[in-house]
Amino acid sequence: MSDSPVDSEEVRHVAELARVDLADEEVEEFTAQFADILSYFDTLDEVPEVESEEELVNVMRPDEVREGLTQEEALRNAAETEAGQFKGPRVS
């Protein structure tokens, strides 16, 4: 038995669950790729956790009420309007 955390039967099982047909060469390729991915997770497990208190700061500006466009100004450059509203192409 190999040192790999993933074997070809597990890859075939996952492929069957995903309803993906794999050739034998693809099974071997994915077995190696899955093993590599799992080793990356092992590497991430070795990273020490850092405890820190986050300083939360509101970076948003306060809302300000300002004068908006009139309906006429808003519709001025519209290609088509109908009953005071923008008119766009029909979606089918």
Rank of each mutant, 00 (worst) to 15 (best):
A79V: 10
Y40S: 08
D21C: 03
E16M: 12
V14L: 15
V50Q: 12
F41D: 13
E73D: 15
E72T: 15
E25K: 11
R19D: 11
L38N: 08
R19A: 09
P5F: 05
F86L: 14
E54T: 07
G68F: 05
Q71K: 15
E26P: 00
V50I: 13
E80D: 09
D36H: 03
T70V: 08
A32K: 08
E53D: 11
D45H: 11
R90G: 07
V14W: 01
D45P: 00
L17R: 15
S39Q: 15
F34Q: 04
D42E: 15
E72F: 03
F30V: 02
A32V: 08
M60L: 14
E28F: 03
S2R: 04
D45C: 05
S52P: 00
E10N: 08
P62F: 00
A23L: 15
V57G: 04
Q85N: 12
V59Y: 01
V50N: 09
E53Q: 11
F86D: 05
E53F: 03
V50G: 02
K87G: 05
P62H: 08
R19N: 14
A23Y: 10
Q71S: 11
E54Q: 06
V59F: 02
E53T: 13
E53C: 03
D36L: 04
T81W: 04
V59K: 10
D24L: 13
R61V: 11
L44P: 00
R19Y: 08
D45A: 10
I37K: 02
E82D: 11
D42L: 07
V91W: 10
E67W: 05
P62C: 02
A74Y: 10
E46K: 08
S52G: 08
V11S: 00
I37A: 15
M60Q: 07
V91Y: 10
E55Y: 03
T81Y: 03
G84V: 03
E80L: 07
E72Q: 15
P89M: 09
I37S: 05
